[in-house]
Structures are given as C-alpha cells and as structure tokens.
Nucleic acid binder design. Structure first.
Lengths: 249, 249
DNA sequence: TTAGGCTATGACGTTACGTCATGGTAAAAG
DNA sequence: CTTTTACCATGACGTAACGTCATAGCCTAA
C-alpha cells in the first residue's frame, strides 16, 4: 500500500490511528491489509492534502457529501488567497530590508525622528497625543518609528501627505461614501504605522475616532497652505468616526 | 514588557528558555526584569517573525551581522516565492474542483475511460503497456484516470493531441535542441498524468525512454492521417531518449 | 534452519507557544 | 496587620502530522 501510493508506512499507521483510513482487514499477526476501496480513499486523501487541507478537514469532507464540501473548499480557498497575499507582502518587505542593509541604513536615532518636521510643533503634538492616547501608546509608537530607517520614514511621511491631499480633494463628497471610506482606510493604516499596532482593536477604534475629534478642535491639523479649513476638519471627523464605528469592530 | 510589546508573557518565558531573549536581571524572587536593550531586541524579533522566519533563524540573524543576514533573507525570500506559487496553484485547483462538483461531474467509470478512443486499439495498447511497464504501473495509471471527471479527461486528451501536433511540426529540428526538448518536457508531463506519478524517478526515466522505443517499433503510435511516419517515430525516440537521460536524473 | 526483509507497537522529537494548575509576591484596601 | 487583588514563576500537557529510532514478531527464500 505504501509503495503503491507513495506515502510512508508510518503515515498509514497514523491514518489508521486517527481513524482517517482503516485497513480492510487485520491478519492474526496484526498486519494491515488494504483493499481497492482503501487505495481509492487514500488517493482522495492525498489529493486533498495537496490542497493543503488538514487531516481533520479531509475526514470531514470524505465522510460527508456535496454541499458541505463546496463550502469547505470555498473557505479554504479564501484562506489560501489570504496566505498568498501575505507571501506577497512578506516578499516586498524582505526586498526592502535587503536594500536597507545594502545601503547601510541604520535604524534612525530618536533625535532624527521628527527631522523635517517643525520640532516645536511636533513636541506639542506629542504632549497632546500623550494626553489623548496615553503615554504607553506614544512610547510604543516612537519606538516603532525609531526602528525605521530614514528613507522609510521619509516614505511614510510622503504617503501620509499624499493621503491627506487626496482626502482634501474629496472634502465635498459624502463622508460615508465608499470613495471616501477607502481613502480613510488608507489614512487609518498610515496612522497605525505611526502608532504601531499596540492595544486592542476597540481601543484603537476609540483612539482613531478620538483623533478625528482632535482634527476638529484643533485647526492646526487641518491647515492647508496656512489657512485653517474648519469644514474640512468636520468632514474628516465625520468620515473617521464612521470608519471607526463601522469598520473597526 | 509583555504589555509594551504586545507579545504574551508565555512567549517571553519561551524566549528566555530558548535563549532568544534573556531578561536584563532576575530579582531575588525570580521575577524577570527587562531593560531598553531587551525591548529593542524583542522588537527586532517581532519584526523578523512577521517575515515568517523561525525563531532559530532569527537568533542566528540577530547574533551575527551583515552578510550572513542578507544571505538568510534571500534564501527565505525564495522560499516565500515558492510558497506563493504553491498557493496560486492550489487556488486554481480548488476552483476547478468546485466547478466539477457544481456540474455534478462524478468520477469517471472504468468503462468510460477509453471513451472517444478506439476501444479495441486501446485495449491492445493496454496489454502491451502492461507487458512493457508492469501491471502495477498500469493499474495505478487507470485508477488515476478514474479519478478524473469527463471534462478533465477530454481536456487532457486535447492537450496530448495538441502536444503531439506540435512535436510533429518540429520533426525536422534537432531532437536535442531546446525547442524540441521543451515540447518533449510537456509531453512527459502529460504522459505522467496518464501514468500517475508512482515509481521512483529513475524507473520513470527508464519507462519514458522505453515508451520512445515503443513509438519506433510500432508505427500505430506515429500515424498521421492514416499514414505511418517512421522518420517522425525515430525523431521522437531520439528526443525522448535524450530527455530521459539528461533531464530525468 | 537461518538470514534478510518486512511488519507492529511504543515512545520521543519537532515548532512556537496556549492553557491550565499550583504556588509565591507585591502592593493596595480594609 | 491582614486580606484582597493582581501579577509572577515553574512545570507539565496539548497542538499537527508525522519522522525517527528501538525492540520484537513474522514471512519467505536459500
């Protein structure tokens, strides 16, 4: 049986033990003898294993017919798509890391963290943020930022600026429209990078909505070309609040 | 430390035990106290974990600098690419399977196996093949085929025919040229689907070369539009033999 | 009869922790 | 000063799917 199918003897033992594939008969000397039915079942098992299903899932599929099976396969397909996506992300990240090492870019120093930004302003923002979100969160965020290289940081800042410009252009749209919400989602992802990803999801949701309030109450954060934009601030606040309540659990 | 970093206390215990991350000090009551250095190291660990590296790999990377690290990352990247590719294949397979189930295509019955082909001829071929490659291989091949649905089988047949036509068009080329060898490789893959994938690689190589001989000695297999093509048969034989000796170990 | 080759069972190893269970500690509450 | 509350530590078992011995029985050809 093992030779015919290509699986190991140990594997057959294992399948026997867990009840996935029992031998047709057991001789008096305890030898496992398999028949044609067992071979066919084994081949099904191998097939589903190739599709990365767990043995538990396989036995559920093999012992039930039709509809359930499609459901299981679809679920599994989604999982595979997610995995594939993850692989892609990781590949990109690795490439970036390799480049960083090659360029001898070391982790940024704390002093450089706010480089390129108005230092005073940032420190004020920092204090305010500590009040709003707690010292732990900010400490965490800073340690996250410190792990980034200069180019990474510059890129993140660029992304954030671009995103902000996009949102500004959408300020006449419905804050709850898909268009706006997509951009808000991007905003949230970027902000998360500044914060790091600590805290539970609902705490994060709360904090994110809170950040929206911050935009409204402090026009410094919604000033375009020197001019305060209170309506834009209100728009942002609505969009962020909607996002927090509807997309962050 | 656990709160700051987001990992569990158990995880810290684990890292301590395996020596990946030791606390800075241990109080008299055995409490683990971590300092800033440990926090930074932990964040590195988390970073590499996100990249799907094993803890062993991480400790190797963190305890050695520069070049080795790039090497490790590249190796890992290749692995990720392979995984991603695998995911893609699996997704396609699952889709096909779902479609098959939806179309209520059951596994083909043995009688239908040679449907569309000249039955007599096929049975003769079958006997001959059993002589050549042994009963086991043919039995296995048939059970493989039986697992296929009708459309699958038709598709495989179509692929085989197309491949055969291509090879015929290449009959004036050098049998060892890359062009021909690529098509021969495809031919081998298709033949393998008929055979299943049982047996060791060298046995398969032997059998594949033997199949070439079969083409030469029996013109039935290289008859185009009713006319035997002995030169084409010889060409095929050379190409297959070269492929078997050079690409099949 | 014996050696070679196959089989069975049992148990430990692998990865990266999760999840108890038991018991000690530290600091706040009473 | 004691209790409560909230952490902390160690130890051990569980997970998925077998691989890898170790020990011992079985079958068959020479």
């Amino acid at each position: 049986m093992a030779n015919l199918s290509g699986v190991s003897v140990r594997t057959l033992h294992h399948y026997d033990r867990i009840g996935l594939l029992k031998p047709a008969v057991r001789t008096e000397s305890k030898y496992r003898l398999y028949g044609e039915n067992e071979l066919l079942r084994l081949q099904q098992i191998i097939f589903y294993k190739e599709m990365d299903l767990s043995l538990k899932e396989i036995s559920e599929i093999l012992d039930k017919p039709g509809f359930k099976m499609i459901q299981a396969l679809k679920t599994h397909k989604d999982a595979l798509i997610a995995k594939k996506y993850r692989m892609e992300q990781l590949i990109v990240t690795i490439d970036k890391t390799i480049n960083k090492i090659k360029n001898n870019e070391v982790m940024a120093q704390p002093e450089e963290l706010y480089e390129g930004l108005n230092k005073e302003k940032m420190l004020k923002y920092r204090d305010e943020a500590i009040d709003k979100f707690g010292k732990e969160a900010i400490d965490h965020a800073e340690s996250e930022l410190m792990k980034m290289s200069k180019t990474d940081f510059a890129q993140l800042k660029e992304e954030a600026d671009e995103n902000f410009r996009c949102l500004y252009l959408l300020k006449e749209e419905d804050p709850e429209s898909e268009l706006v919400q997509n951009e808000i989602n991007l905003h949230y992802q970027i902000i998360r990078k500044f914060w790091g990803t600590s805290g539970t999801t609902d705490k994060q949701a709360e904090a994110y909505a809170g950040l929206g309030q911050l935009y409204v109450t402090d026009e410094r954060y919604t000033t375009m070309e020197g001019k305060p934009q209170p309506e834009f601030a209100a728009f942002l606040c609505k969009a962020m609040d909607y996002y927090a309540t509807h997309h962050l659990k």
